[in-house]
Amino acid sequence: MRRSVILETVIRAELPVLLVVSLYLLFAGHNQPGGGFAGGLVAGAAYALALVAGGAGAVRRTTRFQPTTLLGAGLLLATLTALVPLFTGNDLLEHDVLSADLPVLGTVKTTTALFFDTGVYLVVTGLVLLVVTALGPGDLDVGDVDATPGDGT
């Protein structure tokens, strides 16, 4: 696949923007449309776009994680959020209201459900990354170590 330098540049510039959008969806989800799932999809889609346009190298430069790591970490985060209240005498998945004074945003009120939603976000991002790389162009493998070019020759 021939790579378009312009496209690659544009996408690389766009990548942070999309990531910010996805994070916004994640954080605003509790009060606005959005949530971890939608956020994760956007983040995943951003990478997918980068993948299609820029190839594996580009993605590898921007992602520090294996997609499986994202999956595992997301599930772990969500599960821990579920489990922690058990050990403070509460119910599984019981959330606490958190409030914090942040410099720019002022007083932010949210709940520990945010951590849970972040877990969702990570897992969904991981899914999209894996799907795109698994079904994607054959020379763009990133997900699996044993699939690096040269294996088959």
Binding site: Q66, T69, G72, L83, V145
Partner: peptide, 25 residues
């Protein structure tokens, strides 16, 4: 009884998450 009912559901999931993180080990 919360623990007894909750942990069997959540623990294997936590284990699964750790097992994913332990990919290839």
């Amino acid at each position: 009884m919360t623990l007894l009912l909750s942990l069997p559901v959540a623990m294997p999931l936590a284990g699964a998450a750790l097992a994913v993180l332990a990919w290839r080990h």
